[in-house]
Nucleic acid binder design. Structure first.
Lengths: 243, 243
DNA sequence: GATTTTCATATGTCTTACATTTAATGTTTG
DNA sequence: CAAACATTAAATGTAAGACATATGAAAATC
């Protein structure tokens, strides 16, 4: 692991990159302890603050954790799906909000990905996932629910569907797509009639999953996508004249 | 934006979190300049190194960039799909390698997601994407190609397929799933017969996409998934006795 | 008026120091 | 002898000050 002092890039970035590469290459194993900050500083021939900046960069990506005290130090993290998911969601959310991605594009991606889960979810759905879906449908029908709470419940419903596929890799990838839609959905106001339609489609999807009918599940999702797209179009169209 | 000195968490982590929240909430706009390190240090009542550690955390996530010089400082980044993709790929790769995700699970997720792109890719594929797919198929047939280069070409082929869907959100999400499979695929040795079968299926898929036949595209992907799963099973089975 | 020089400002880095946490070690005491 | 307590050492966390360096803008010069 070497760095180039003549490189215009920050030393801390170079050091972080070198350690990251070592982790990816398997030179550094999970739970292995890195040399102490002082030792790293000597190895790379830089000062301790510079090493610390590099370690913070890695900590921000959950690649390492640090522990104080006598047997403390920096340890290579076992990157878990649970730890990676929040970051994935944050990044996805910012990507949508900063790049003027249209509602339509994001919605298309989300439902395309969910349809990918339909066959697996239909085949493997557990009683647990079904119960969650039913519970969220029930919550969505309660009067006095704010639009925001309705959206949150919608997300929970879809995550239960995705988790029903029983594939952690799928769940991880889709968490970003599903959750990142929430801020966009929150811009929409749902009339009672809108909610009724959505709840109806949710019920149809849950029934299809319970019956292990993958085709019907996919059709339900497609219908829900159409409904959502049309609803968004109506809402955004109605707001346009104001601007 | 406030931090709690009595919080057991690192001050730099708290500061990074506060700034990150401000970016997500829209309090800090894209390309807006943050206060200088010295000013931030005063605002949060911490030292400059602590502020710097916080900024490095944010830089590691591409949320900010820094510039030296008179009009320099830390600026809120417009998070682009191009910048987010490498991180997404790194994370996905590490997730697979560190969590003992089976080849079968990762493969299932990858092909499920790709099938989600099939209808869109069939409908929108451009001459450009088709040309890339054909070129990669041709490359895969060349003699003397190493297994690693064959895998890299395979990834390029599938990325062209995904990009053909013309949805940046989909491309971003799938980049992780497709690229993260490469290290796993690299563990496989491809016989000439294996390669011929895969190239044949690739051709079938490219033909289907060109003909804008979404059903045939999905079927081709399913056949390719079966082929890949069977191949991996054979290879891993053959290696087992050794251990 | 165009070019060069100077200068102010901000980040990048180093040095030193002290605070705090934590486990291991040593010591005292019942 | 054992358990509770105090000590110590090692590591990270934080602070303060200094210097190096890059860079845009203003001032001086031709």
């Amino acid at each position: 692991m070497k760095i180039d002092p003549s490189n215009p890039a920050d030393l801390s970035a170079q050091i972080a990159g070198a350690i990251r590469d070592a982790i990816i290459a398997g030179t550094l194993i999970v739970d292995e302890r890195l040399p102490s900050e002082a030792e790293l500083a000597e190895q790379f021939d830089v000062s301790r603050p510079t090493v610390r900046e590099a370690l913070k960069r890695l900590a921000a990506q959950s690649l390492i954790r640090t522990q104080r005290g006598a047997t403390g130090g920096a340890f290579v993290n076992r990157l878990s799906f649970e730890a990676a998911q929040p970051q994935q969601i944050t990044t996805s959310t910012l990507l949508l909000s900063m790049n003027a991605v249209s509602f339509s594009t994001a919605c298309e991606a989300r439902y395309a990905l969910e349809r990918a889960c339909a066959p697996l979810a239909a085949a493997r759905r557990s009683a647990d996932h079904l119960a969650t879906m039913r519970a969220e449908i029930h919550r969505q029908g309660q009067p006095g629910l704010t639009d925001e709470a309705f959206c949150a419940s919608d997300v929970a419903f879809h995550r239960a569907l995705v988790d029903g596929a029983g594939n952690p890799v799928l769940s991880y990838q889709l968490a970003g797509a599903v959750e990142a839609m929430q801020p966009l959905m929150n811009m929409i106001t749902f009339t009672a009639r809108d909610r009724a339609r959505i709840i109806d489609l949710h019920t149809r999807i849950a029934d299809a999953v319970e019956a292990q009918d993958d085709a019907a599940t996919a059709q339900g999702l497609t219908a829900l996508e159409r409904e959502t797209q049309a609803l968004a179009e109506r809402v955004f169209e109605a707001r346009k004249p104001r601007s």
